[in-house]
């Protein structure tokens, strides 16, 4: 069973979203990290880059695969997790602590699911 914390929202493309004082934190779900296998590199946007809901914000590499990471929101990147960039294994170790980017000035959201609905969605994809 995959962990899906109740307090988060989820995109069907396997990103989680959390609000912290008007700033939105984006990361990858447990399901996503498991499907990817050992993460070896994360390719993230720069601070001040614009991201758009439903569009790729960067990608994430395992040894033999690469997957897009889609942004659940439209807005401006205000912080990038340098720690994850330096040590991508953190995504495998604790995907909900290893956030990727923080986005401000959010104007738009991708369709988001709660933990239960997301778990069901994973079940179907599984």
């Amino acid at each position: 069973m995959f962990k899906n914390p109740e307090e988060l929202k989820y995109a069907k493309t396997h990103e989680w979203l959390k609000e912290e004082d008007g700033v939105y934190v984006v990361g990858l779900t447990d399901f996503a990290q498991d499907a990817l296998g050992d993460v070896v590199f994360v390719n993230l946007p720069a601070v001040d880059d614009e991201v758009k809901a439903g569009e790729s914000l960067g990608d994430i590499e395992s040894v033999k695969a690469v997957s897009d990471v889609f942004s659940p929101v439209t807005g401006r990147v205000v912080e990038v997790n340098e720690e994850v960039a330096d040590n991508p294994a953190l995504v495998n170790e604790d995907p909900y602590a290893a956030w990727l980017i923080k986005v401000a000035d959010v104007t738009e959201f991708e369709e988001l699911l709660d933990a239960a609905a997301y778990a069901e969605h994973c079940e179907q994809e599984g």
Partner: peptide, 13 residues
Amino acid sequence: TLQAREQHIRREK
């Protein structure tokens, strides 16, 4: 190594 840069994995990207 660093193969995920390459065409056989990244294809059009």
